[in-house]
Amino acid sequence: MKNKRQNIYFVSDVHLGAPALTNNPEREKLFVRWLDEIKEDAAMLFLMGDIFDYWFEYKKVVPRGFTRTLGKIAEITDSGIPVHFFTGNHDIWVFDYLPTELGVHVHYHEMRASFGGKKFFLAHGDGLDPFDTGYHLLKKVFTNRFFQWSFSHVHPNMGIALAHAWSKKSRLTKGMGEPFKGDEKEGLFVFANSVLEQEEVDYFIFGHRHLLLNLPIGKNSRYINLGDWINHFSYGVFDGEKFELKTYKR
């Protein structure tokens, strides 16, 4: 008899609270409904970055909102299901609040893991694109301790307003779900190929690009992009034998 809790779930780019979107309450309720459903058969949950459109933990303050999501994640971890949270480029400033209050395992860098005899390479994807040199510099600024300390001393009302203005501009100008550029121009695909030159990987799991992709790469590997909860309402699931991309029925 198979273990009831056998599925490993992956989801990315929910962008809760995105100021450029007008349906944030509806999207959060839908996401929480999905979380509530998967907890019945989940062995593990991977939140693969940009779950929040903006997140910064001050010493005594966290961003307003997301009560339903935070409560549901805490319920999942309290039930004994491990939850792994990868920081993305929008929620990069996660420190001790989420692991302490919710019991999640926070990852600031890529992770390698084995499930069901398959090797997984897991990352949000920001900072791995070899062509995106501008963001590489920006990420160094965002992860600099002095910059983080300085920003923490800006009043939260002003700091969050600045972050929302930045986020709204980036969402509107860059677009979401820019088409796949091709094997030699798609930065994360090129990066994954470079990893395969050094080691064997069965599944590369990325977010960041807002694309819904399950492509062959190398000889026997798969390149996965998890889509988002803005246009696709998608997620990945590994049942111990195979990996599938799915969309949540609204």
Rank of each mutant, 00 (worst) to 15 (best):
E37M: 12
F66C: 03
F46T: 07
P63E: 06
I51N: 07
D126L: 08
V62K: 06
H90I: 13
G127W: 06
E110L: 05
W34N: 07
I51Y: 08
A123P: 02
T87V: 15
W55A: 09
M111H: 09
D132N: 14
W34Q: 08
R112H: 04
P130T: 03
V94L: 10
E75W: 01
H107D: 10
Y97L: 08
K72C: 11
I38C: 11
K60I: 03
L30A: 13
I73L: 15
K139I: 10
H109K: 12
L102I: 12
A74W: 13
K118W: 03
F115V: 05
G125D: 10
L30R: 12
D36A: 07
G103F: 02
L102E: 07
F86T: 12
G134C: 00
E40R: 13
G80Q: 02
F46Y: 15
Y97E: 10
H90A: 11
F95G: 01
S114I: 08
H84D: 15
Y54R: 14
P99C: 06
L45F: 06
V104I: 11
Y108I: 10
F95W: 13
V106F: 11
D50M: 14
M48K: 03
D78V: 01
D78A: 15
I92M: 15
V94G: 03
H90G: 11
D53S: 14
V94R: 05
L30D: 01
P63K: 05
I76H: 11
L45I: 10
E57I: 06
N89F: 08
T77Y: 04
D91F: 14
H124C: 08
G80P: 03
L47S: 08
A123M: 02
R64P: 00
V94A: 07
G134Q: 09
F46D: 05
Y108Q: 15
D41P: 06
E37P: 03
K39I: 08
K59E: 14
D91L: 14
K119H: 10
I38S: 11
V61N: 05
Y135W: 12
D50A: 13
H136C: 00
A123E: 01
L35A: 03
P99H: 06
E40F: 10
Y58L: 03
K59D: 10
F66R: 04
F120D: 01
K72H: 04
W34D: 07
G134D: 10
G65F: 04
W55I: 12
H136I: 00
V94T: 07
E37D: 15
F56H: 06
A74F: 13
A42R: 01
G49A: 11
S79I: 03
P63V: 03
L98Q: 08
I76Y: 10
E57V: 06
A113L: 02
M48C: 07
D78R: 14
T67L: 05
Y58K: 04
T87H: 12
G71T: 06
F121D: 00
F66N: 10
L102R: 06
H105T: 13
K140E: 12
S79E: 13
D96V: 00
V62I: 15
F86D: 10
L122S: 05
L35Q: 03
F56A: 04
H90Q: 13
F86V: 12
M44F: 04
L128V: 07
W34L: 14
F131P: 14
M44V: 03
R64V: 04
Y54T: 12
W93Y: 10
D96T: 09
L128G: 07
A42V: 01
M111S: 05
F86K: 13
G103V: 02
H136D: 02
T67V: 06
F66Y: 15
F56N: 02
